[in-house]
Design a protein around this nucleic acid. Structure first.
Length: 575
DNA sequence: GCCGTTTTCGGCCCGACTGTTTTCAGTCG
């Protein structure tokens, strides 16, 4: 995780340089770019340092390589310490307040020595800010509201929540007469695991009508901006939603622009310039003569740049532009590629429906088979099955399979990995199952080494085929447990065990970067909804997006195997 | 501070909105 620490340091340096003022803005940007690429790094940074390959990280040149090395070997960075002496650390936190940028933060510090959001709030409430140049009554109100936002800590919402909210709003706006096209954009469209605010793009002949409808929606808490082409609201729950209206001939260009990511856009704009083109949200234009070259659809925009259309989930400047140019984008991953639904619960344990109902619903979704994986005996809270109960469930599955042919229920279990790494059923029981999914559900606080050893021991068991939710995190609720995922990946690869990408809205575990790392080390992956209630079956869409973000190809997923193919894969490990 | 199918130096993406201004700076995405 050293790469994340270094990314944090580079971001802090960028903040501090901006606060200092008078810096070359491109130098600031260079630090931010390096930080971003470090966050998205899938390789091991210390390995890169050893093999003298740090410069292969985009945005890392001679100087930053030196700084990375300094931090890796000493755990400190003299340059950062010097900057921190010039500007107290607290000033940086002011930048978290929406509406306060480096210039204002600097001004506040120079005039009032403000070093924390609390001090800032006191000053605003005392009406002291109005006296500063460039700030007035409105600015005070804005900053005060920004402070509330930070305080309430509602920074980002889980993707699943954002998807629903986005769908609700687009559904309403579609009804406005004159609306021709509508789409969500931004990180929501890219399907990032958490989303800060929601961007919506509309193409309409009558923008004013759409804007009026938008700011008048029932869910609106307050209107922050209400312009001709751009409006911005905050919902009653405090989520910011931005709406843009663009003309038809610009819809594709605007969709590319507002879907981002910013880094992806910068990359393709650079490409455009080298082709004598310039790209903005209104279209692609020839610099000579300012003639329009594209803009109506995304496909058209990318084609004008000599690229195939790039799926939104990939647009993070993590190599997708280069891959597109070389025709090496990962093959498309569709719901219809999935033949099996893995990891499902029934009312035998903590699921809400009888096995038959679950099976019929999954068959209805177009799957050829499913894995039934109720909990094992130790997980008392979930009604884990004793050996006898498990055998009874097996009997029911046998009877159902006769009736549901050719659909097939594979008999599985979500078996607890006990704190010492042993499994919750003996091998003679596991051997009777078609597929075994192992998972940690207890002793989450074990030290990293213990937890890693525990999981590795489970992977070594010849009957364990899939490791469920490998990090155990619950977005906004529970931290991932401490585990060395690299070792887990290596062991998974060696033992022929797959890692799960759990699609539950709060899990998304493995996430995009972790999954990408796993597949790059040759590990097979599994998409699972971990369904307890039938409505959760649709979470598979979140998982598919996460998998695309991880550059997962159909061939990386066990779900794309037939039941027979999967059984062959299981058989290999048992041998 | 990075980077190169025009460059090892001279560029680096670009526009809307707000608030406080008399022409624009700051912030945001």
């Amino acid at each position: 995780m050293k790469h994340l620490e270094i990314a944090g340091i580079f971001d802090e340096i960028a903040d501090l340089l901006e606060l200092k003022g008078g810096e070359n803005p491109f130098r600031v940007r260079a630090y931010r770019r390096a930080a971003l690429n470090l966050r998205g790094l899938t390789a091991d940074i210390e390995e890169l340092a050893r093999t003298d390959s740090l410069r292969t990280i985009p945005g890392v040149g001679e100087d930053l390589e030196g700084k990375i090395r300094e931090f890796l070997s000493t755990g400190r960075l003299v340059y950062l310490q010097r900057l921190r002496r010039e500007i107290p650390a607290g000033v940086v936190t002011l930048l978290n307040v929406p509406g306060i940028g480096p210039k204002t933060a600097k001004l506040l510090y120079d005039r009032f020595r403000v070093k924390s959001i609390r001090e800032l709030e006191k000053l605003v409430r005392a009406g002291k800010l109005q006296r500063l140049p460039g700030l007035g009554e409105k600015s005070e109100e804005n900053i005060l509201r920004g402070i509330q936002v930070v305080k309430q800590g509602r920074e980002r919402m889980p993707l699943g929540v954002a998807v629903s909210l986005g769908e609700e709003i687009t559904r309403e706006l579609k009804k406005v007469p004159g609306v021709k096209q509508i789409s969500v954009a931004g990180s929501l469209r890219r399907r990032k695991e958490t989303v800060r605010d929601i961007d919506i793009l509309v193409c309409s002949k009558d923008p004013a009508k759409v804007m009026d409808r938008f700011v008048g929606l029932g869910l609106v808490g307050r209107v922050q901006a209400h312009g001709e082409t751009k409006s911005s609201i905050r919902t009653k729950q405090g989520v910011q939603v931005d709406l843009r209206v663009v003309p038809e001939e610009s819809f594709g260009a605007a969709l590319v622009y507002f879907t981002g990511s910013k880094e992806h856009n910068i990359k393709i704009r650079g490409m455009a310039l080298r082709r004598g083109l310039t790209v903005n949200e209104y279209g692609v234009f020839r610099i000579k003569g300012n003639r329009r070259a594209a803009g109506r659809s995304e496909e058209e925009v990318y084609r004008a740049l000599g690229l195939p259309w790039i799926p939104p989930e990939l647009r993070e400047d993590r190599g997708e532009v280069e891959a597109a140019r070389e025709g090496k984008l990962p093959p498309p991953l569709r719901r219809s590629d999935l033949k099996g639904s893995f990891h499902n619960h029934s009312e035998w344990t903590d699921g809400s429906h009888p096995v038959e109902q679950v099976a019929r619903a999954i068959r209805e979704e177009g799957y050829e088979y499913m894995i039934l994986s109720d909990h094992s005996r130790s997980l008392r809270v979930a009604g884990g099955l004793t050996e006898q109960e498990l055998f009874k469930e097996m009997g029911e599955v046998r009877r159902l399979n006769a009736r549901l042919k050719p659909f097939r229920i594979l008999m599985g279990s979500e078996v607890d990995i006990l704190p010492d790494g042993s499994l919750d059923y003996p091998d003679r029981v596991l051997a009777k199952l078609d597929v075994v999914i192992a998972a940690v559900h207890s002793a989450f606080k074990q030290p990293r080494e213990t937890m890693t050893r525990r999981i590795l021991r489970a992977l070594e068991n010849p009957f364990v085929n899939i490791l469920a939710h490998p990090t155990g995190r619950l977005l906004g609720e529970r931290e991932a447990y401490a585990v060395d995922l690299e070792q887990v990946c290596r062991a998974a690869k060696r033992t022929g065990t797959a890692l799960e990408m759990n699609c539950h809205t709060l899990r998304l575990d493995l996430n995009d970067l972790e999954a990408r790392r796993a597949r790059e080390s040759g590990v097979k992956l599994v998409l699972s909804t971990d369904t307890h209630v039938l409505s959760q079956l649709e979470d598979i869409e979140l998982g598919l997006s996460m998998a695309r973000r991880a550059w997962v190809a159909p061939s990386d997923l066990l779900n794309t195997l037939s039941a027979k193919g999967l059984m062959a894969w299981v058989g290999k490990k048992r041998k």
